[in-house]
């Protein structure tokens, strides 16, 4: 078992380094960092709006507006890391070469997941913290340690959210025969889950029932089946990151609402947290099983 862990770590390390040197991934990571930086700065300066409308009087107001942007675009990090993780190895026959070594399949898939997950965590940690640091320096807003803890909680929640898309993209990469098809499927799924899901449900329901109330009610029921809803609730107290008209999910405005303590936040949102983490773990398990069942020789 010790050997297995060592093998897994070697593959994870290799995967991590490959990602770090991938120009596509690096350019995306830089873009993502800049977007967060710009948004957090702009939102942080909107003191009148956030303090009177959102009722958030401190530095956290900047991140309140960022959650929807991160919620929409952070999943792409997972997709970029995972869409060709397996199919590329199979197509280049390196998977067969790899399997000639004293390695189990679970070592390979777990190593790849671990390497990519570490990379996601690194990118989120650096991009969000640099953005936060820059905003704090420019704004001069008072900060306490509790605010920093909230920012790191936000990094952790976003990590689990992106992990779901990493697992999903890896599973599609295992199933798909070509990398471009895998990418296409991943983008389609990302679009549907993060951007269109609530709107699609709402409009379909509205067409069938001709009632806004029923359509809204049904939409609120169905969005429980996507991790994006739980992420939106945890980070911004919203029902959906894309469809703001659905309103708030709670009186607490998410992790950045400093009107409430972190324990209040945890007491309110623990079901969402568990469901979000469960989504990630279940999809990871599914991708591992899919790889173990995969016929590599085909």
């Amino acid at each position: 078992m010790a050997i297995n862990i060592h093998n897994t770590m070697v593959i994870a390390k290799k995967e991590f380094i490959d990602h770090l040197k991938s120009p596509i991934f690096l350019s995306f990571a830089i873009t993502f960092t800049l977007v967060i930086l710009a948004w957090s700065y702009v939102k942080g300066m909107e003191v009148e709006y956030t303090s009177t409308v959102l009722g958030m009087p401190d530095v956290m107001r900047g991140f309140q507006g960022v959650t929807s942007v991160v919620g929409k675009f952070a999943p792409i990090i997972g997709i970029v890391l995972g869409f060709d993780a397996i199919v590329k190895e199979i197509k280049s026959n390196s998977m067969n070469v790899l399997l000639t070594h004293p390695l189990f399949r679970d070592n390979i898939i777990l190593g790849k997941i671990l390497g990519s997950a570490t990379c996601i965590l690194l990118i989120l940690f650096i991009s969000i913290n640099i953005a936060a640091g820059a905003m704090l320096i420019v704004s001069g807003l008072p900060v306490t340690m509790q605010h920093l803890i909230r920012i790191e909680f936000f990094v952790a929640i976003t990590f689990f959210y992106v992990l779901f898309f990493l697992a999903l993209s890896m599973m599609i990469s295992i199933i798909a025969r070509k990398a471009n098809i895998s990418l296409l499927f991943n983008i389609a799924i990302w679009l549907v889950i993060t951007v269109l899901f609530a709107d699609l449900i709402f409009k379909s329901s509205y067409i069938l029932t001709d009632s806004v109330e029923i359509a809204t009610k049904q939409t609120l029921n169905y969005i429980n089946f996507v991790p994006e809803h739980h992420y939106a609730a945890l980070t911004g107290g919203m029902q959906d990151v894309a469809k703001e008209s659905l309103g708030s999910s709670s009186a607490i405005g998410g992790i950045f609402d400093t009107s409430y303590s972190l324990s209040d936040w945890a007491a309110e949102f623990w079901p969402n947290l568990i469901i979000l983490v469960s989504f990630s773990i279940v999809s990871l398990i599914a991708s591992v099983i899919a790889f173990l069942k995969k016929d590599i020789t085909l």
């Binding site: 380094i17 530095v59 690194l122 913290n129 640091g133 605010h147």
Partner: peptide
Amino acid sequence: SESSGFFGVGLILISICVLGLIIYKFG
């Protein structure tokens, strides 16, 4: 606020240090 400058610089320095360490170790 003095705390904002302190924490802001701190966050950026930590991020850069982590990035440097990763590049040094896995570069």
